[in-house]
Write a protein that binds this DNA or RNA. Sequence first.
DNA 1: GTGTAATGTATACATTGTACACATTACACA
DNA 2: TGTGTAATGTGTACAATGTATACATTACAC
Lengths: 230, 230
Amino acid sequence: MYTLHIQLLTLSTSMNMTNKSTTQIKRSTYRHGDLYRALLEAAVQLARKGGAEAVVLREVTRQAGVSPNAAYRHFADRQALLQAVSMAAQSALAVEIENEINRIAKSDDLLELARARLRAVGTAYLRFALAEPGLFGMAFSVPNDLSNAENPASAGDSGLTAYQLLGTALDMLVETGAMTPERRQFAEIFAWSAVHGFAKLMLEGPLRSLDKTQAEAIGQRLIDMVERGL
Amino acid sequence: MYTLHIQLLTLSTSMNMTNKSTTQIKRSTYRHGDLYRALLEAAVQLARKGGAEAVVLREVTRQAGVSPNAAYRHFADRQALLQAVSMAAQSALAVEIENEINRIAKSDDLLELARARLRAVGTAYLRFALAEPGLFGMAFSVPNDLSNAENPASAGDSGLTAYQLLGTALDMLVETGAMTPERRQFAEIFAWSAVHGFAKLMLEGPLRSLDKTQAEAIGQRLIDMVERGL
DNA sequence: GTGTAATGTATACATTGTACACATTACACA
DNA sequence: TGTGTAATGTGTACAATGTATACATTACAC
């Protein structure tokens, strides 16, 4: 089981500017050598540009310079490929959140730190959604339940998944007394729902005409609401 | 421009129990008579069972007993058909919300009424999502911005859309002094995001394994959070 | 050195959205 | 009342897609 993490995202979007011609690499050997990875990388790039529907098996194999059916040696079917992309997307999101958390200014005020941490998770979540709409759309849509949200394969560099990073922020709020233990239950779901819904409404919903700066401002106010209401 | 409203939903899911054989109605006349409606109804039924991806043009025309290309006399392309289904879905959702609002017990306490109204919108939204996942998934996914959220064609029996019904609830909160005018701005988006996100996470996300009763309980607590945080 | 499992290819099929040319008919206007 | 025209439905065709099945090539274990 490979994990790709963020390098997929820092990869330049496309080597060739011609949007049509697919990067088809000829090879001399019969074996490809690293086809699983090649397929997954191609799939991720397609997903970045056009979301799940852009991940078409034949195009992926084309880009890997391989016959269509070769994919079936590495993925049971298209769904399985999408699932792999989904995990890569979750992983990339987790890294984004970690980065945001690491940007928090040092402080002795634990309460302040806890609050900042919660905001960091939400802010990074929304930023990722806006920056990588294609990947974001696949992160939590493919068949994929909560057990996966604790799967190290979908985690970031710290080994924690986005869901777990959110959980630790909430735990800190409880520790500092800012949140009662009763309120802690299901708190992940409440916070997550808010930012997730906003992201979805913006990316594929009626809020799609919001421009980026507006979106960020409203996003912050949304997080305000969550902070007050949790 | 036809509008279908709720009767589509009260229609029994399927006349024939055989899941395979599509209901193909033979007709003697060359003209169908009401093909637009027939296509839209078939599309809605397919959407109910399998969401947008289940709305395949050829199957829709099959069920209407007509050749595939006949659809192009009434819809520019598949997207246009999906758009029509989306509006029907929005309309059905609006009706669901209206019904919930009408169930609110009479009271002289305006604040209580306002709060109940907001909760009714959220509760009905979530109930609709759970009861009609296929339609719900299409309501706010197809290309479709906020201007549509005020389009009478996607409204309920009262002539108001779901978005507008939410707006009136928020207005009442301001009138009763429970919400400051500053907080009123974008409040639709905040409340909407929360329930929408929860619904999405449940229907096609990692929360899909939640059972219905659990989902309802958590949904109510989510609405609690919104109420506090708005 | 050889056989076997892993990996890639060739061919084929059903299905889909949709373009284009043609057939049928309702209805407006003479 | 007849007729022409626009609206509506059909037939045929094409490029794509996911994937099944049979076959080809090669790495590697013994």
